[in-house]
Design a protein around this nucleic acid. Structure first.
Lengths: 256, 256
DNA sequence: CAGTGGTCTAGACCACAAT
DNA sequence: TTGTGGTCTAGACCACTGC
């Protein structure tokens, strides 16, 4: 993740090294495959079982491994997507009316060649220029979320400078980008905080966060932006006020 | 929580006992207060520091304690509520169109006298009868969520029987209750899985879950239901398809 | 400097699964 | 019975805070 580059000098943590090595192993395996016992991994990686367990624990909370007592540890099935209706996760307007002071800091920007995955998400060819921006969003002076925005570089010349020069970082960003977005797909999941994220948010490594991924398109279906936002799960709850559009009358029954 | 009663025979876990004792302590303290060092707690509770750390770790992920290296552990500020717009977290209709088979099992029901908190939430006097229902919701035969529904008992005579007799548990429940709901407040937060929940969902104790709390009211503002749903965070991601109602043009700028 | 939380070790015993 | 993950112990050393 690009966010890693934001923080330097993080002391190497053994359990993270082990975690990385386990990830390398299981990436090539299919769901349901049994991985070696914790005691064997401890020997293989020349460490203690406790350290292996910490690494495995994070992979379990990320949904990549499943532990079965008495049986073993297995590669997990990929996460299932469950439908949900959200209309705007970034309720700035409401926040202000409730007396919350919001603040956004531009941590950094970079223009790099798109990898295969991002290129696909933004509808461009691999190697074309991507503009990435990292933001730190705070509420009442306490860090709340890290946001990583990716757009097609060619479409947004000088956007970094414009944002850096503005007092209203977030609003400028959203105005320049979101005006083109007509439809979006949002994904919400829980993930443990990485060390760099924990440092920036003042939270603990491994603390659960809400990861919201937004994929915005124009009305014509052209990809506009791919945004990931990590919210502190320990410090915030998210509140929605809902007014029901219609009774459920029109829906047909289905097996429950 | 009522859900606790659903499972028996869970072996007593020392770190949970310690956690409970710490909770008792900090409940009476104000945010920002320093609690005793881990080594002292280990002595006081006649256990090891490791066990104390596991208990404290869960309280940190619940946002009740904050650890500061080199300084100490403190009672946390209460969670901040961040506004969010959600219109229907239970996207049954969409789920089916995407080929997900949903299934709901009624785990249990009970009619008990309302405590002060629940009575207040449901607009009744303490001691009046509350109907609580526990549901296990699965997708493609894999447990996805635990739901605990609370309504005013007097308003729903025989609802348990009606649901127990039906094939369409969830739809009957929502039809009978949600038809009265016009407005709702939803809260989303991350919490670690309790042992009883972990057992029912086939997940691990302490795994982060998405806790969604729904507080439904009639158009006249009368409370109808108070529902808590725990979703497995390791196994599911939640996807929303959004169509933007309007451009952001009308909004005024605000400090970011 | 002393005291705190953060990481890691080596080993014990338990509960459960598979045989 | 054997081997697995689950819990717990006692202690070490490190990194950081605050005096």
């Amino acid at each position: 993740m690009t966010m890693e580059a934001t923080l330097e000098g993080v002391r190497e943590r053994l359990y993270l090294k082990v975690k990385g090595q386990i990830v390398e192993r299981i990436e090539q395996l299919r769901p349901g495959v049994l991985i070696p016992p914790e005691r064997d991994l401890a020997v293989a990686y020349e460490t203690s079982r406790t350290t292996v367990r910490k690494a495995v624990a994070e992979l379990v909370t990320e949904g990549r491994l499943v532990r079965r007592q008495g049986s073993g540890t297995y590669v997990a099935e990929p996460k299932l997507a469950w439908p949900l209706s959200v209309s705007d996760f970034n309720g700035h307007a409401e926040a202000e009316t409730e007396g919350l002071r919001t603040c956004t800091i531009l941590l950094g920007t970079e223009r790099i060649a798109a990898g295969e995955e991002l290129a696909d998400r933004l509808g461009m060819r691999p190697g074309a220029e991507i503009l990435s921006m990292q933001l730190l969003r705070s509420v009442n002076d306490a860090p709340m979320a890290l946001e990583c925005v990716h757009v097609v570089g060619r479409r947004y010349c000088g956007l970094e400078a414009e944002i850096a020069a503005s007092e209203f970082v977030y609003e400028v960003l959203r105005k320049r980008i979101s005006d083109r977005v007509a439809r979006a797909v949002e994904t919400i999941e829980t993930v443990p905080a990485a060390p760099s994220q924990a440092a920036l948010l003042g939270t603990e490594i491994g603390t659960p966060m809400l990861l919201v991924t937004q994929h915005g398109h124009t009305a014509q279906g052209e990809p506009v932006e791919w945004v990931q936002t990590w919210y502190r799960g320990d410090r915030y709850s998210f509140v929605a006020h809902i007014t029901k559009p219609q009774a459920h009358a029109g829906r047909h029954l289905m097996p429950t």
